Lab assay of single mutants.
Amino acid sequence: MKTQEELTEIVRDHFSDMGEAATLYVQVYESSLESLVGGVIFEDGRHYTFVYENEDLVYE
């Protein structure tokens, strides 16, 4: 099982292909040891929320 830090790095790496991230945040109260819930805000103003669970990243 991966730590939240490892899950955060996986998510950060995925979003790095989409541009320069200004902020990546984790909603600790919705996350667990198995999943990471949060969002990313890019330098150009785009904002996505995400759920990373079971090696699957879903974002909108």
Rank of each mutant, 00 (worst) to 15 (best):
M1R: 13
M1N: 10
K2C: 14
K2H: 06
K2Y: 06
T3E: 03
T3Y: 04
T3H: 04
Q4S: 05
Q4C: 15
Q4W: 13
Q4G: 03
E5R: 09
E5G: 05
E5V: 08
E5A: 11
E6C: 14
E6M: 09
E6P: 04
E6T: 06
L7Q: 02
L7M: 06
L7W: 07
T8W: 13
E9P: 02
I10S: 03
I10D: 02
I10M: 08
I10R: 07
I10A: 05
V11D: 02
V11A: 04
V11N: 02
R12I: 08
R12K: 08
R12D: 01
R12V: 05
D13A: 15
D13C: 15
H14N: 03
H14A: 10
H14F: 15
H14E: 04
F15N: 01
F15Y: 02
S16D: 05
D17T: 15
D17V: 13
D17G: 14
M18A: 04
M18N: 03
G19K: 04
G19I: 08
G19T: 05
G19N: 05
G19Y: 08
E20H: 12
E20G: 12
E20M: 12
A21I: 15
A21L: 15
A21N: 13
A21R: 09
A21Y: 12
A22I: 14
A22F: 15
T23C: 15
T23S: 08
T23L: 14
T23E: 10
L24A: 02
L24E: 02
L24W: 10
L24C: 13
L24R: 01
L24D: 03
Y25G: 02
V26W: 07
V26E: 01
V26S: 00
V26C: 11
Q27I: 15
Q27M: 13
Q27D: 13
Q27G: 06
V28R: 04
V28Q: 08
V28M: 11
V28G: 07
Y29K: 01
Y29V: 03
Y29T: 03
E30G: 05
E30V: 13
E30N: 14
E30K: 07
S31G: 09
S31F: 11
S32W: 10
S32E: 11
S32G: 08
S32Y: 09
S32P: 02
L33K: 12
L33A: 10
L33G: 09
L33S: 12
E34K: 09
E34A: 11
E34G: 15
E34Q: 14
S35C: 15
S35N: 05
S35F: 15
S35M: 15
S35E: 03
L36V: 06
L36S: 01
V37Q: 07
V37Y: 07
V37H: 07
G38Y: 07
G38S: 02
G39D: 07
G39N: 05
V40G: 00
V40L: 05
V40A: 03
V40N: 00
V40Q: 00
V40R: 00
I41N: 01
I41W: 10
F42Q: 00
F42D: 01
E43I: 11
D44N: 04
D44E: 01
D44V: 10
G45V: 06
G45L: 05
G45Y: 08
R46S: 07
R46M: 04
R46Y: 04
R46T: 07
H47K: 05
H47E: 06
H47R: 06
H47P: 00
Y48C: 11
Y48D: 00
Y48Q: 00
Y48L: 06
T49A: 06
T49P: 01
T49R: 08
F50I: 03
F50Y: 02
V51T: 07
V51L: 05
Y52D: 00
Y52R: 00
Y52H: 01
Y52T: 01
Y52L: 07
E53Q: 12
E53L: 12
E53N: 07
E53T: 10
E53M: 13
N54W: 11
N54Y: 08
E55F: 12
E55R: 09
D56T: 15
D56F: 14
L57S: 02
L57F: 08
L57E: 02
L57R: 01
V58D: 03
V58A: 07
V58Y: 11
V58R: 13
Y59M: 09
Y59N: 03
E60P: 05
E60S: 09
E60F: 13
